[in-house]
Simulated scan of single mutants.
Amino acid sequence: MEKREKLKIVENAIGTYSDFPKPGIIFRDIFGVCQNVVAFRALRDLIVEHVMFLEVDIIVGLDSRGFLFGPLISLELGKPFVPIRKKGKLPGHVLQQSFVLEYGEDYFEIQTNSISEEKRVLIVDDLLASGGTMAAAVKLLKTLHAEVVECLVIMELKNLDGRSKVDAPVYSFIEYN
């Protein structure tokens, strides 16, 4: 099956919910893909085909949907997986970075001993919207002197222009306006 067919299968499996979590929002739900074995397999194939030639040392998944795809990539590439989590979820010494939400502020954390300097990192998440969480993740990793090779997302909401806030290359499989 070719890439275009796989993308169509994945796109058709993504759930769309109007007025969630509040009126006027169209929510794109990646869990529809996870519930459809054919679509999930197509997405896995697309991800693996894309990342297999990236030169990375570590896969970083963002809380929480990046945890669905990061370990899969980690296993396929034979590279370690490191989570970036919301504040208060990781033990040990952590580094923290704030980011702005539409209703306030939140924080991402990473364990400081999880990535050594000059490691090449792939960041994975399901969605790039306004760019706040991805930008915070990139800042955290750069503070640890890691090189962010790419930020990989399944879906991107282009009209929110999140990639302009991210100080690293971004790749998305499916774009919505």
Rank of each mutant, 00 (worst) to 15 (best):
K3E: 15
R4L: 09
E5A: 14
K6L: 14
K6P: 03
L7W: 05
E11C: 11
E11L: 08
N12D: 15
N12A: 15
N12Q: 15
A13L: 10
A13N: 13
I14P: 05
I14F: 05
T16Q: 14
S18D: 13
F20D: 02
P23F: 04
I25S: 09
I26F: 07
I30H: 03
F31W: 02
V33Y: 01
C34A: 11
Q35K: 10
N36P: 11
V37C: 00
V38H: 02
A39R: 01
F40D: 05
F40T: 03
F40P: 01
R41F: 04
R41D: 06
R41K: 08
R44G: 11
R44N: 06
R44A: 05
I47L: 13
V48K: 03
V48D: 04
L54K: 09
L54S: 12
E55V: 13
D57G: 10
V60R: 00
L62M: 08
R65W: 09
G66P: 02
F67W: 02
L68Q: 00
L68R: 00
L68P: 07
F69S: 05
F69R: 00
G70T: 09
G70L: 02
P71A: 11
L72N: 08
S74W: 00
S74T: 11
L75A: 13
L75D: 05
L75S: 12
L77A: 12
G78P: 00
K79R: 15
K79A: 10
P80H: 12
V82D: 09
V82I: 14
P83Q: 08
K86D: 04
G88E: 01
K89Q: 04
V94I: 14
L95K: 10
Q96V: 15
S98T: 15
S98L: 03
S98I: 06
F99G: 01
F99M: 01
V100G: 03
E102V: 11
E102T: 13
Y103F: 08
E105Q: 10
E105F: 08
D106H: 06
Y107L: 05
F108M: 06
E109W: 09
Q111N: 13
T112L: 09
N113H: 12
I115D: 03
S116P: 00
S116N: 08
S116E: 07
E117W: 09
E118S: 14
K119H: 13
K119N: 07
K119Q: 13
V121H: 04
L122W: 12
L122I: 12
L122E: 10
L122S: 12
I123P: 00
D125F: 15
L127E: 12
A129G: 10
A129D: 07
A129H: 07
G131N: 05
G131S: 09
G132H: 07
T133P: 00
T133H: 11
A136I: 12
V138I: 07
V138E: 11
K139P: 01
K142E: 14
K142T: 15
K142L: 06
T143P: 00
H145M: 03
E147R: 05
E147L: 09
V149R: 04
C151D: 02
C151W: 04
I154Q: 03
M155Y: 04
E156G: 09
L160M: 09
D161Y: 12
S164G: 01
K165G: 12
V166W: 00
V170H: 08
Y171F: 15
S172N: 04
Y176H: 02
